[in-house]
Structures are given as C-alpha cells and as structure tokens.
Nucleic acid binder design. Structure first.
Lengths: 352, 352
DNA sequence: GCTAGCACTCTACTTAATGGAGTGCTAATT
DNA sequence: AATTAGCACTCCATTAAGTAGAGTGCTAGC
C-alpha cells in the first residue's frame, strides 16, 4: 500500500483528485464522461476508463455495480488527503465567528461546550471536544467533609476554578474538625503544585518519612493519597450536533445510525479513538475503517489535539460521513484547536 | 369530548378496548373481521363496522385510508387508559431487578442514572429522570475562593454530599482570608437550614438589620445572597436509551427522529413537559399531541413524580411511541418512582 | 498510447396487472 | 329496532414488464 503513489503517474493522481472532489461535492458515483470534462486533461472518456480500471486494481476506487461510475475507497480518500488535497483557507466569516466565541471566558467547561457547538454548527456534522486532562493542572484548594460510616466527601479545586468532588473511605473515623485540620494542612503544603507532583510527593511521604510525622499529618497524607489515587473523570467529552448525522443518506441504513448513537452514549470506544490523537499533535484523520471500529466504517473523524502552555491537554474534532469536505474541515479543526488552547490558557491571577 | 364515555354503551367500549389492545400488540390497523373474532361479543363483522363508524364519528378511532382497518386516535388512547385499561401487575423478575438496583447507594446522582437506565432497558424505550430539586435540601457547608477581578468561586454542599459551585461577582475586592471568614460565619449560622430558608433569612437580614451588623458580617450576607439568588442547575435530567426509539417505524419518518433528538438535546421543552408532572402526584400520561409539542405527536410520555420525605422532588418517566403497552408501562413507572424516592431518602448521619 | 464505437449491464423509473383486505351501503332477517 | 348477509367498491401492496439513461469493457483503428 505504501507504494501506491509510486505506481501512479501524475495523470492518474490528477484524475483521482478530481474524482474525489467531484464525489465529495455530488455524492454520486463519478463516470468517465464527467471526469473527462472536469479534469483539465482533455482526455477521452475511454482513456479515463482505462485509468479507472488501474485505480480500481490498486484499490483506490470502487464501483457499486457494473454500470455505475466510481467512488473512492478509504485508501482512495487516504491518498487524497495525504498527497492530493488542496486545503482551502478558512472562510472569513467563520474565522471571525470562531475568534469571537473562543476568546477567554470565565468558565472553562463552558468554553468546551462552545467549541463543540461551533464545530458542529459550522461543519453541519457532529462536534466533539474532550475535557482537558487535569494531570498538568495545579491544586488550588482541598477540603474534607465527614459523611456516615467513615466515608469522607473530598472537594478540591484545581487551576482557577475547576471544582471536583468524590467520596473516599477513610481508615478510621475522623471528626469534622480533624478533617478540617487535615485540609488546612494539605492546603498549606501542596497548594499551587501540580496534581502529578502532589500525587508523587504524597506517595513518597508515605513510604519514607512516616516516623517524623505526627498522627494528624499522617492522616492527612493518607486522605490525600486516597483522594488523588484514581483519576476518575479524566475521560469525558462534550458531543454536540449528533443529530446532524441523521441527514446523511450514507449513514441511514437502518441499524447504522442506531449503532453510531449507541457508540456515542457508551463513550468508551470514542474515548479510545480520541486518545490516539492525543499523542500526535496537529490534525489527525481517521477514514472509514481506519478507526478500527466497524461502526464507523462509513464515517471519518478529523481531530486535533489542543494544548495549554505547550502541553497537550485534550482533543477535539468532527465526526461525519467519509464523504466530507476535507479541504475545509481540516484547516477548520486545526484553527479551532489552536484557538481553544489559547482561550484556555491559565489567566494570570491579578492579586487583589 | 368529556361526554364520550356517556355516549357509548358497554359494547362499544368493549370493542374499543379490544381494538386498542390489538393495535398495540400488532401495530396494524384492525379490521372488523379480526375484531369480531378477538372480542368475546359474538358479533358479525358488519355490526362491528357500524360501531366503528360511530367511534370514528366520535374521534376515537381513525382509518388511514378507505379500505384499511381502524387505529386509535389520541382521544381513543386517552379513553382507553382512563377507563378501559386493565393494568398488569409487574413481572416478578423485573420487580426484583428494580429492587436490587434501586436500593440506597452512596451517590444520589449515580442512582438517578441507574433509574434512568432501568426505565430504558426494561421498557425498551427512552428513560428519563430529572435531578432532584434542591429547594428542599439543606445547606451543609459553604466556602468562597477568590478569583481575579472581584469574581469569587463559591462552593457549597447540600444534603449529604451534593457539591455545587458557581462564580459570583462581588461588590468589592475581598482577600482570601476575608472570604474564608465569611464562609465560616455563614456556616455557623445557616448550616442545617434548607436553602429556601437561608434564602429568605438572608433577604430579611439585608432589608432589616443592616445597622447592627459589622462590615464583615454584612459582606458575608451579601455574598450568600449572590450565591443563592438564582437556582441555576435546577433543571436538568438524565436521559438514556434514546436510541431505542430508532427501532420504531412510526417514528422513522425522516425528519421525525431528528426533531425528537433535537428536542432531547435542547432540553427545555422536555423540562417544561416534565414540570407539569411535578404538580400532580401519581402517574401522568401525555398521549400524542396532548403534550402540546408537535414533535411528540407520535409519542407518549408516561411520567410519575418521585418524592423524598413526602415531598415531590423530581419526575421520572418513559418516552415512546403512542402505541406502547400502557398496561405494563404505567405500573412500572409508578413502582420505579416509588423505589427511587425511597432509595434517595436522606440517610441518618451517624456522628462519629 | 489514445480514442471512437459498439455491445452489454445494471439501475431507476414508469406503467399495468393482480390479489387481498376492508369498508359502506342496502336489503333481508330476527 | 337491532343485527346480519351480501355485494360493489376502494385502496394498498406486490409483482411483472418495459423503457430510458448512464456507464462500463473491449476491440479495432488512428
């Protein structure tokens, strides 16, 4: 497969390009006649048919039945986006809309929602944005409240204003005021450090320094360990515009839509897919079966990771039918990711 | 319309009943021949046709075209559920499944999700549960953290362990320690009171007693007022099994499903519908256009409010096509509401 | 190596024909 | 007066057949 490009001369590539473009805009199998007119090559339909036969042998295009035109296969799309695509610059109107809506706001979570909605509305497909990872976020405040049966409600704030809470089971019964002291103690030591740092510091304390701590300190550390040991909500996303997918005839095969929507609500497969994009930076594209999930064999996913302070913290993207306007979607997703990253940049807290 | 029942003799009602039952189980328009066999009345098809004509005049049934059988109209279903329905007791297996899954758990929010999923899975339709209203919940802890530009992050805990947070804009710049004091002060006075009570107490303080308070107290009260003035997340719900609706042919008219799903993600219409059920207690049913929303003219909504401590705090229910097995759904929704209410009952906090 | 031409294939659409289900009406029956 | 049998009629669903159009593959000639 890697030598596809080598096997093909410029003319074939040119024809493949126009074919894909034509199919993306029309949604109909493209025949030799229309290709002959569309391409600037001045070739007769018969010649084009020969080329098409070659492309079909290479698995780049495919014919739904004997007397229909050709449509691109996943490999065809892949070759197209990798080597043939002419990206279109972003529409000015859309660009200003992005800028306007993705300027730093109070609430980060709110902004994630805005980004997702923008992705969906502008592309008329489904928009998806993962919540920013909180490993690289810093601890701002922590607090414990007693519940019944040695359960403790822990509330902690990260960054500017993200509030998390979970219930932990403590080893022994601690009173409200003991818990309060523990909170105060932890705040005094760990405030301002990253969660990762806190996590490892806590572990170290527990392993090494137990002797020189008093009981209260030890309790506090143990609680902290419990509070931060698992990273619960690390994997969630905001998905909008799913219903836009209902408009696409290629996805409307009875079960198809249901399966896609089921995948959306189960979340885990999607998460897994998005995770793959975390590693790469820049735009990533999964075309059809490339995603590895049968449900999405008719879909493409265009993603980009987004970064705060030069560290990748999340992924956003767009899900739609394989037949999508890649030349517009790709730069659009790219820009959106950059703007979101910038908008999420920790604001400098002006001390009052 | 109110005198429908009066206009009809037992025989007509009996026939309507069998017609609805038959249509619910088959999904096909019911003709006079099959009705004649189904009903125990031993009437000839011809007679039944006459009765049908009467029912049609009354708007209880309707014929899709001249030579088809009859299907119930919304009014027909309404009469059916109001006066003709023989409710079926709950399946034992389902009942024990409910009991097993809806016993008191740690996390109330988690339980809401479980309830929603149960509703969806057992009925094979969409399940919906509103989050419990927090008016009648009591304040457990409140805390303020400074943000930039006079913005303050307020975190408060209600009941056992529900954590809420929002950003408010304070009148003047307050330091972290001032904010902490304000929190401590408010905790000392208002802890354990209901949010409603706190809200009105705060208002009263502001109107009446300003002179005898010192500045710090006044600041604290003002913050509390801001924190509680609006009731933001009061309206939200957990919806599951939406995709089950994709299976029903009566909803599959192209745009139809899309509109329904759009309504689901906009939430507000649904909320409004559910709100109506808050007032009544016991099971409520909206059939087709009765909901008042065109989108749901092919759907029915069976709801029940659920109560904690004898106070209605939320609504749950099931959304499906008008053609649903009311005789099973109704008792099922009823029981689920009761079990959820019971499971949410505030646990007695054992002081450590 | 390219192209014109032709036979062939397959789809999509229209039209017609057929059978079945069910109705409404009327006249006969109880 | 209520019920029923019978009949003509309507409408749908399905099948079959025919047609036009689009597009291909192949071959022979340029």
């Amino acid at each position: 497969m890697a030598n596809n490009t080598l096997d093909l001369n410029d003319r074939s590539l040119q024809l493949l390009k126009t074919l894909v473009e034509r199919y993306i805009s029309d949604g109909q199998p493209v025949g030799s006649r229309s290709l002959s007119k569309d391409s600037a090559l001045n070739l007769s339909p018969a010649t084009i048919r020969n080329v098409m036969a070659d492309l079909e042998d290479l698995g780049l295009v495919h014919s739904p039945h004997t007397s229909a035109g050709r449509i691109p296969t996943s490999s065809g799309y892949r070759l197209f986006v990798d080597s043939l695509l002419t990206v279109k610059p972003l529409d000015n109107q859309e660009l200003s809309r992005l800028h306007h809506n993705l300027s730093a706001k109070d609430d980060d979570n709110q902004m994630i929602g805005v980004a997702s909605r923008l992705l969906a509305e502008i592309t008329q497909m489904a928009g998806i944005v993962t919540l920013p990872r909180r490993e690289l976020t810093c601890l701002r405040h922590i607090e414990f409240l007693p519940l019944s049966h040695q359960r403790v409600l822990v509330i902690f704030v990260t960054n500017e204003q993200e509030v998390h809470n979970k219930v932990i089971y403590s080893e022994k019964n601690l009173s409200a005021s003991e818990l309060q002291q523990a909170g105060a103690y932890l705040n005094s030591i760990y405030c301002g450090q990253s969660l990762d740092a806190v996590r490892s510091a806590v572990l170290k304390e527990l392993q090494v320094d137990q002797e020189r701590m008093n009981q209260a300190m030890l309790d506090a550390i143990k609680m902290a360990q419990l509070a931060f040991e698992t990273d619960d909500n690390k994997d969630d996303y905001v998905l909008t515009g799913e219903t836009n997918l209902m408009g696409f005839s290629e996805l409307s095969g009875r079960n198809h839509l249901k399966q896609i929507f089921d995948a959306f609500s189960q979340k885990q497969d999607i998460i897994h897919l998005l995770d793959q994009s975390m590693k790469a930076d820049g735009v990533q594209i999964f075309i059809g079966e490339e995603s590895g999930y049968q449900v999405f064999e008719q879909c493409s996913l265009v993603t980009s990771s987004y970064s705060v302070n030069n560290e990748v913290v999340g992924v956003l993207g767009v899900i739609g039918p394989t037949r999508m306007a890649y030349e517009k979607i790709i730069p659009f997703v790219d820009v959106t990711a950059k703007l979101l990253g910038a908008a999420l940049n920790p604001k400098t807290t002006t001390p009052s």
